[in-house]
Design a protein around this nucleic acid. Structure first.
Lengths: 129, 129
DNA sequence: CAGGATCCCAAATGATACTG
DNA sequence: CAGTATCATTTGGGATCCTG
């Protein structure tokens, strides 16, 4: 049912306080999953490449350390947003990529992008400090 | 131009790596604004009430301290998502509410809610720990 | 190659007390 | 009422070195 809730229904329910953050509306869980300095940057890699290896991610993300990349990947995998496939080869090979759940974030990112472009000037003004 | 980019165009540009997180796509700025334990919970209050006072927010957000509520509100205001109106009365009265930029987050939250409901079971499974 | 282990610093959060 | 000040605690992030 909830999947088919229209934007107008959503607005009405939010206004009524039915869809609160501590209730039925799962906004915080996703934001928690995306929390962390490298989360979205890593996720973007999976938008570009269907499968990426650890060392490729390191190359594409200047400044990230082994520790942070490893931690970030483990959290994203644990949250179900990406998969991890390990090949028993020497040298080792591990590939990462979006799960369906992870790929379904794209409409969310699209909406964030629209918001960002609409308020581009204000956002930039606020980030001066 | 960017405001009119369709979802299909967006997907194509993301795939090409044109809209990266370190480039033209403002995903991180918003996520940074929403970062913090109480951010979305406070924002939800403004979805329900057009104008809310400090003490009302405290009542509606069990567990929040003066410090955290004050800090959260100052950050949201500094980012331009909410306004703050102070009345020179005794006892003091201060009201907070959405700016247009803040209210424009609702389509984003709607998209997150759709994602959340679609993957409800997986999200809950991951949050067991 | 793909990481794990360890240690250190910075930022976020929280408890408590106080003020115009 | 609407906060601020101070201090303690927890979490996040990073540097460096090591390993199957």
């Amino acid at each position: 049912m909830a999947e088919y809730m229209s934007y107008e229904e959503y607005l009405a329910n939010v206004k009524k306080g039915i869809l609160t953050d501590r209730g039925n509306c799962p906004v915080t869980p996703l934001l928690t999953m995306l929390r962390g300095k490298w989360k979205t940057q890593v996720l973007y890699e999976f938008c570009v490449h269907d499968r990426v290896r650890f060392c490729q991610l390191k190359k594409d993300l200047p400044g990230i350390t082994n520790t942070m990349l490893s931690t970030t990947l483990r959290e994203l995998e644990s949250d179900g947003l990406i998969f991890r496939e390990q090949f028993n080869e020497i040298p080792p090979r591990v590939e990462y990529g979006f799960t369906e759940m992870g790929r379904d974030l794209l409409p969310v990112f699209y909406e964030i992008m629209r918001w960002g472009f609409k308020h581009e000037n204000e956002v930039l003004a606020g980030s001066v400090d």
